[in-house]
């Protein structure tokens, strides 16, 4: 696991929101799985930590949750994006793109340009 990256503070929330935006209502395991898949197993995620985050997002009103039946007919809690959550996602995505762009330019700069 040595070359796996820890999740950066604050980015996990954005990943969760994006996942729900793309896949629609999903249970916790599904979200965790999806994040790992997309990150190409580069991320080391303690899956348990996802749940306090989900709770926080729910309390903030970005997502909503309800019990439902899972694929193998078990009870699972499904999370879905709310209207507020969608707005939040858009603004956070914008911020993130800005940040990465700045970082990218910064890292690409050569000595003479600085």
């Amino acid at each position: 696991m040595g070359d796996k990256t820890d999740v950066m503070q604050g980015t996990l929330a954005l990943m969760v929101l994006k996942t729900l935006d793309v896949l629609g209502p999903l249970h916790g395991w599904g979200i965790a799985r999806r994040i790992e898949q997309i990150s190409g197993d580069l991320l080391s995620l303690n899956q348990g930590t996802l749940y306090p985050l989900l709770l926080r997002l729910e309390q903030e009103g970005s997502i909503d949750s309800d019990w439902g039946a899972s694929e193998n007919n078990r009870r699972a809690r499904y999370y879905r994006l709310t209207k507020t959550g969608r707005k939040q996602l858009q603004s956070e995505v914008r911020e993130w793109q800005q940040t990465t762009e700045i970082m990218a330019r910064f890292l690409a700069a050569r000595a003479e340009e600085l």
């Binding site: 249970h27 916790g28 395991w29 965790a32 799985r33 899956q47 348990g48 749940y51 899972s70 193998n72 078990r74 009870r75 699972a76 809690r77």
Partner: peptide, 14 residues
Amino acid sequence: REEMQEHIAMETAH
């Protein structure tokens, strides 16, 4: 507790 049980079950199955 319920969510954890559910999660572990799914991960185990996976």
